[in-house]
Design a protein around this nucleic acid. Structure first.
Lengths: 210, 210
DNA sequence: GTTGCATAGTAACAAATGTTACATAGCAAA
DNA sequence: TTTGCTATGTAACATTTGTTACTATGCAAC
């Protein structure tokens, strides 16, 4: 564990802090598609991503859902940070998008380190910053882009996150993440295929050039 | 100044910090409609709201715009906090919605106090938290609500912020904030008037019951 | 192979939103 | 009062997105 930790966070944190993380954190290794946090669930610890990727989804009461953003190595969940104050119930759902390694930090430590380590404080601030910027980007997409542009952006982002030019998703899954219907996605994907930007297969989409 | 400061932040900050804020902050009193921050502008100080309200807008390159949220007394601008790291260019536009009093804090101090005062640290964390939650609410609105529901929510929020059941905006202004067209807003407002929920006048909208 | 199920394709239509164009109304300055 | 400008009302139409319903296809279990 200490080696993984050093690789991902060694340049960010001082040795004493790395030591504490190693001591108090819990190493976790989850497969793809593992549900890490559910909406309304209470949060007891915050995740530090070592490798893999996590998909953060927003759901509302009527079963509507929407992809907010992805977390990658070196990220942490700002929504979790946020839960250390006030309400501790999660507003989001977190699902691993890839096999993922992470370290869970008890929230008391998060509080303690904030006073103790400047590098930790900066890390937390920077995480908030990054998450706010991702939220802004999400807002830009849903407010300013048409569905075909959002789909294109989705395919690009997904390919980048998984580091694979084939995207293993069904049209229905994409529809859920973009909060639209399967028929709409099929329609737009077919248009992209006709433009020879992608190649459609059962259960996957091969990107030719986006 | 010190009295205003105590009224708004006295319960939040210890005396020593209040003292420093008083010493290093610059008191600012702006009229309604004053542009505090423009997109792309560099940020040199962060605002602490004493009274009034500030509208935070997102713009994109094509002249599209969208209301993100309002700041009120006791709030600060997380987007500004965020600018103390990395890029210091503003991603948003801030305009006073009411006559507004605020204290501008030089960003070096913000950094310094973060290490020095636990109450300041908590304030900053809580601000980030609140802003993330507002962004989530904005995303919910644009992703899950139809335009008529968004308009209703807009009227309610605006009335609450200004503490006035008459909203002094033109249809065009509302259209900009909701990122749609004037005709669409006129249409929906007229529908609300027919339902006797509002009364339309030139340059203002009187809320009857929402 | 045949069956069954999940996935994808597509047409036809419905609803929501956006656009254009023009008419009307309110208000203030000349 | 007339003029001019801004704001609002409204029709007609275009586009985008969503829905329903049905077909076709791929794949695996039998």
């Amino acid at each position: 564990m200490i080696q993984d930790l050093k690789n991902s966070y060694g340049s960010l944190f001082e040795d004493a802090l790395l030591e504490e993380i190693n001591q108090f954190g819990t190493y976790k290794d989850v497969p793809e598609g593992y549900k890490l946090i559910e909406i309304g669930q209470y949060i007891k610890s915050m995740p530090l991503l070592i490798s893999g990727a996590i998909k953060i989804m927003r759901d509302d009461d009527d079963g509507d859902e929407l992809l907010l953003y992805f977390l990658e190595s070196g990220d942490t969940c700002a929504m979790t940070l946020t839960c250390c104050l006030g309400t501790t119930k999660s507003e989001i759902r977190a699902i691993s998008e890839l096999p993922t390694k992470l370290i869970m930090i008890p929230i008391e430590k998060m509080e303690e380190w904030t006073g103790k380590y400047k590098s930790w404080r900066n890390f937390v601030f920077e995480s908030y910053h990054n998450r706010l910027m991702e939220m802004l980007e999400t807002i830009d997409s849903i407010a300013f882009l048409k569905m075909d542009e959002r789909l294109l952006k989705y395919l690009r982002d997904k390919s980048k996150i998984t580091n694979d030019d084939t995207i293993y998703s069904t049209h229905q899954e994409i529809a859920y993440e973009l909060h639209t219907s399967r028929v709409v996605i099929s329609r737009l994907l077919k248009k992209l295929e006709n433009q020879e930007k992608i190649k459609l297969n059962r259960n996957n989409i091969k990107i030719i050039s986006l």
